[in-house]
Design a protein around this nucleic acid. Structure first.
Lengths: 230, 230
DNA sequence: ACCATGCTTCGACGGTAGCCCAACCATGGT
DNA sequence: ACCATGGTTGGGCTACCGTCGAAGCATGGT
């Protein structure tokens, strides 16, 4: 039968049905910019319980609208491709109201992209840049897992990081963690956590209003600039 | 509230929900090429009862995906704009199977566009062209309703049309009927019906496999060419 | 006046889909 | 070994949605 190779009405309807639920639509629009978000975060954004979100995500996955990547105990979901984003945009264009995200939403998205925590260490753009600078400054060497140089140990000590304690921890010392918003690695493990703790203690970063969001302070901007001579 | 002016997830979901039902999807794809189709025909194409189709059409109308125009006892529905068609096309692209209509479907669509009956008279491209030629040949004069010239009366008599009987009918003699597939008028009324009857009797046109579909015969092609010197 | 046709509305039925709670599994840190 | 956190799975409830038959309107032809 030729008909089996044809995108018929039923197929269109199936895809549309996946988007037709408000919760799933919220999940999809949250992923519109191509970032990958953890299941829990998506549940929070959509305003449903983790169980409900999980069920929706499973259906979106089965329908091929999203893909998933497991990292640690998180499962990061993202749109499966640009066509999916296109569908959402076109749908928004058809719907009567203009397709602009609310200020509050997009501002929050920016903040998350800027800096957030991944477990207990700095992630997002800020996390990626921090690692980049540490490597460029010759403080860290390595690939998937890093080691501190003498200069690095001194620099971090000055920042108030208890490197010895981090090294003593049973946790992996300084592994790279692929950042899903930046697609480049940031510093994780015991050292990453210790650095982040120091940054918060020194008030270079402050916890933001939304969960996981960190905001750089004026003090932090100056301190980081001095440290890496921006 | 700013939120009221924003196309949010709920709006996208609403539009998607309109397409999410297989029956509605069938209706929409039937309208994909911009033609306007009567409610009954859509019901038949979608394979549901008129009642069901009517309910779906009402929802599509309320959702702004289609518009309606009443003509006589028919209600012609069409897509409200190209954006709607775009949505369907993009959705088809996302769905796994290639977005090609089956040969049988599109061939049938072509036939309908080519020639079909509207009540009991010739419509579609053939109907529009017939009227155009009759007017250009000086056989008919008028605007919304036509009158036969002497030359026209002779020409139609030669075709086997019983003009006298048509004129005697209580039915309107030769009104123009706006053709919704061509957006130009075709000949309706008693004369339109009489002409169509003659065309069928002479085997210039033959009823096709699908309802309302007419197909021109080789004989008809020759006859029409001679009549209007194509 | 009367009937036929096309379409919509009403009411009722059945199925399905979304939601949450609670329990379960897996991973990571201590 | 133990706990905490993040996610998924199963069960049960509710609500909504699609479907059709029958009845109601409107239009057109006789």
């Amino acid at each position: 039968m030729v008909a089996e190779h044809v995108a018929n009405d039923a197929d269109i309807a199936k895809v549309a049905a996946l988007i037709a639920d408000p919760t799933r639509a919220a999940v999809l629009t949250a992923l519109l910019d191509g970032r990958a978000l953890a299941a829990g975060e998506l549940a929070r954004l959509a305003g449903v319980s983790p169980a409900t979100a999980s069920s929706h995500l499973a259906r979106l996955l089965a329908g091929g609208l999203v893909t998933v990547a497991t990292q640690g105990r998180h499962r990061y979901y993202r749109l499966s491709g640009p066509e999916v984003a296109e569908v959402l945009e076109v749908l928004a264009r058809v719907s009567p109201r203009p397709a602009v995200r609310s200020l509050r939403q997009s501002r929050q998205a920016r903040l998350l992209e800027e800096a957030r925590t991944c477990y207990d260490h700095l992630a997002g753009r800020a996390g990626v840049e921090l690692l980049t600078h540490l490597v460029e400054a010759g403080h860290l060497v390595g690939q998937d897992a890093f080691e501190l140089t003498a200069a690095g140990e001194a620099a971090l000590a000055e920042l108030g990081v208890d490197v010895a304690a981090a090294r003593a921890s049973r946790r992996r010392f300084a592994p790279a963690c692929l950042d899903w918003t930046e697609r480049r690695p940031h510093l994780a493990g015991a050292l990453g956590a210790a650095v982040t703790r120091s940054l918060l203690e020194r008030d270079w970063y402050r916890r933001g209003s939304a969960r996981r969001v960190l905001e750089v302070t004026d003090l932090g901007r100056k301190g980081l600039a001095a440290m890496f001579s921006y």
